Structure formats: C-alpha cells, structure tokens
Amino acid sequence: MGEANLTCVKEFILLGFSDLPSLQGILFGIFLYIYINILFGNGLIIAITKFDAALQTPMYFFLGNFAFVEICYISVTLPRMLSDLWTQNKNISLLACAVQLCFFLVLLFTESLLLAVMAYDCYVAICKPLYYTLIMNHKVCVQLVVGSWITGVPMPIGQIFQVFSLPFCNSNILNHIFCDMPPLMKLVSGDISWNEVLMYADAVLFGFIPFLLILYSYIRIFITIQKLPSVVGRSKAFSTCSSHLMVVGLFFGSGIIAYLQPKTSYMAGREKMVSLFYTIITPMFNPLIYSLRNKDVIMAMKKLLSKWMGS
C-alpha cells in the first residue's frame, strides 16, 4: 500500500518569490537591471583585457577569463528567474533542472579554481618578481585556465547523475529560486546519506582546498610585503592584490554559509537570500571592485568607451 500511494514527480515547481505576489513586477525590473549591468560590466572587462595593449599581462588574462565565467555563471540562473517572474510559470522538468544544476556547479567550481589561480599569480608577482615572466608565461597561463575548466567538470556530472537517478516522490515543491543541491536533496525519497557525503566532498575539494591555497598564498604575500623597506612599496604591492582579496571574501563567504550550514539551522527564506548574494550580487560587484581599485583598468575603460562613442 505504501508503494502504491507513492507518486513520483516528473517536474518541479520552483516557488522562487511567489510569497511576494505584489512585488513580482518590481523584482523583474530589479533583476533585469542587475543582469544587464553584469553583462555590460564583465563584457567591458573582457573587451579591455583582450584589446588594450597595456593589459596584456597574466593578471589581466586571468581577469578576462574570470569575467567570462561570471557571465556564463549568471546566465545559468538569472534568465530562468526573469522568465518565471514574467510568465508566472514556475514549472521546470527534471531534465531542465538537472541541466541547470550541472552547469551551475561546473561554473561554480571553475570560478573557485580560477580564484585560486589568480591568488597564485599574485603570489608569484610579489614574492618572486624576478622569476615572474619565466614562471607565468603565456603557455602556463593558458594551461591553468584550461585546467580550471576541465577539473570542475567530472565530479558535478557524476553527482547529478546519482541524485537524479533517485526517485522524487510525494512532493515536487522546490522552495528555492533555482535548482540548487541543498533544497533538491530534501525532495529525494530514500536514503541520501551517500549523496550527502559526495556533496560535502565536492564542497571540500572545490571550495575548502582552493580557499586554503588562496589563504596560504596571501599569508606568504603579507609576509613578503611586511619585509619591503618603503611604505610606498608596501602600499603598491598590497593594492595589486586587494581587489582580488575582496572578491575572494565575497565569493567564499557566501558559499560557505550556503553549502556548509548545519541541517538544524536550515531556513528556506535565509537560503534564498544567501543564494541571491553568491549568484547575483557578487558577479554584479566584481567589475566595480576591479575597476574602481585599479587605475590601469579605469584608463583602459575610458579609452575603449571614448573610442566606441567617437565611432
């Protein structure tokens, strides 16, 4: 009788912001404005790092690739959210949910690894300046970027396959703004202990380990900066990596809160807000952080914008 009463779902209902019916139009306008700003800001960074001769260095090569990942990352979730707000059709098939989650995790892991690569670049630039051009040559930079993309692919695909091989029964209500792993696991019927182990293993492998590598790089950087004889030299060295350090804090801080919070403190409303932070707010602020704190980027943007406006 228990098996007979078990009805397995073929699609989910993403609740999103359905608890705010009077604000659907306002939320659509806000998120559309944010999406356009993210596309424009990161697209501008890609353009200047590609075409400005003064920015043809490893640091800006990584920054351009990071901006491209940010555009892909935000495009996995935000267009679907805009569509749901506009049409009020919140249904999403299991296949569409699996594809969205797979791309989201791959890009999330790629971004984490790229941040570690950028920290390593800062470390070499400040701690080993005489060997910088030798260590961070173009071939090595390309290999590091490609490695960040390839390394982040196998684990999410395997985990998604395992999760969606399990039955989703009795409830198809996904109380979230997109298909994310923690709320999705709550709808799986049966034993999910192994899947939870894999989820935390992914968090350690692609979150905690890159974070430790970044932390180690910055400890070495700060030790080296403190040994510099002049105040001007210390200030210049620190400004080289301060923007990246701010982005790291935003990205890993929100990610840790979202994926490593204990089950007893789980709250759907709070998780939605945290998800908004690391999926939307962080990509929106990244171009501002890198441009406002970097004179070379500001000059390159001014030249590019004046060229576009002149033509």
Rank of each mutant, 00 (worst) to 15 (best):
L130S: 09
Y132M: 02
L134I: 12
L134V: 13
M136N: 08
N137I: 07
K139I: 13
K139S: 13
V140S: 07
C141T: 06
V142E: 07
V145P: 00
V145N: 02
V146T: 07
G147H: 02
S148Q: 04
W149N: 11
W149S: 06
T151W: 13
V153C: 12
M155N: 14
P156C: 02
P156M: 02
I157V: 14
G158S: 08
I160V: 09
V163F: 00
F168A: 00
F168Q: 00
F168R: 01
C169D: 01
C169F: 03
C169E: 00
S171F: 00
L174S: 05
L174D: 07
N175P: 00
I177T: 08
M181V: 14
P182L: 03
P183E: 07
L184S: 01
M185T: 00
L187N: 02
V188Q: 03
V188P: 04
D191P: 03
I192E: 06
I192W: 06
S193C: 04
S193H: 03
N195S: 15
V197K: 10
M199T: 15
Y200W: 10
A201V: 03
A203M: 07
V204G: 11
L205P: 04
G207Q: 01
I209C: 10
P210R: 12
L212K: 09
L213Q: 11
I214M: 09
I214T: 05
L215S: 09
Y216W: 12
Y216G: 07
Y218N: 08
I219E: 07
I219T: 11
R220A: 11
K227P: 12
P229D: 14
P229Y: 10
V231S: 15
V231R: 11
G233F: 05
R234T: 05
R234D: 06
R234I: 06
R234G: 04
K236Q: 13
A237K: 01
F238Y: 08
S239A: 12
S239V: 08
T240Y: 15
V247G: 08
V248E: 08
G249D: 08
G249A: 12
L250C: 11
L250F: 14
